[in-house]
Amino acid sequence: TIEDAIKKLLKLAQKGQPYTFGDFTVTSEEEAKKLAKWLKKQL
């Protein structure tokens, strides 16, 4: 689910690992949080 993807994304971001989700490449926890907010709006 999208919720699971968001959780995984935040965990990876906390470890400092870049994470690619579709067109987004997230390289920081701050970016992960922005992406998570955006994804929730898409639901």
Rank of each mutant, 00 (worst) to 15 (best):
K34P: 00
L12C: 15
T27P: 04
Q42G: 05
G22E: 10
S28P: 04
A36E: 03
E30R: 07
V26I: 12
K8M: 14
F21P: 02
K41G: 05
K34D: 04
E30A: 10
V26A: 06
D4M: 09
T27I: 11
K7T: 06
P18W: 15
G22C: 15
D23N: 11
A13D: 02
K8T: 09
E29A: 10
T27F: 13
K15S: 11
K40P: 01
G16N: 06
A13G: 06
K11Y: 13
K41Q: 11
G16S: 05
E31H: 06
E29I: 13
K8V: 12
K7H: 05
E31D: 12
W38S: 01
T27A: 06
E30L: 09
A36M: 12
A5D: 02
T27Q: 04
G22N: 13
L35I: 04
L43A: 05
I2F: 10
L9W: 08
E3I: 14
L10W: 11
L10R: 02
T20P: 11
T20K: 05
Q14W: 15
T20N: 06
L43Q: 04
A36R: 07
E29P: 11
K7R: 11
L43R: 03
K33V: 10
P18Q: 07
L35S: 00
Y19P: 06
K41P: 01
G16W: 12
F21G: 02
A32T: 06
E31I: 12
L43S: 03
V26D: 01
A36V: 13
K37Y: 10
V26R: 03
A32N: 01
K34M: 08
L9V: 04
K11W: 14
V26Y: 04
G16P: 03
G16I: 11
L12F: 12
K40A: 13
L35N: 00
W38V: 01
K7V: 07
T27Y: 10
Q14M: 14
A13V: 12
Q42N: 04
K15N: 10
I2C: 14
I6S: 00
K11D: 08
K11L: 13
T27W: 10
F21W: 13
E29F: 14
A36W: 14
L43D: 02
W38Q: 01
I2G: 01
L10E: 01
K40N: 04
Q14V: 09
L35V: 02
Y19F: 15
D4E: 11
I6Q: 00
E29R: 09
V26L: 04
A36P: 00
L10V: 04
L35H: 00
A5S: 04
E3S: 06
Q14N: 09
L12R: 08
L43I: 08
A32P: 01
K37P: 00
K33C: 15
K33E: 07
F24K: 01
K15G: 07
S28I: 13
K11E: 13
I6M: 06
T20E: 06
K40T: 12
T1K: 08
K8I: 11
L9R: 00
Q42L: 12
L12H: 05
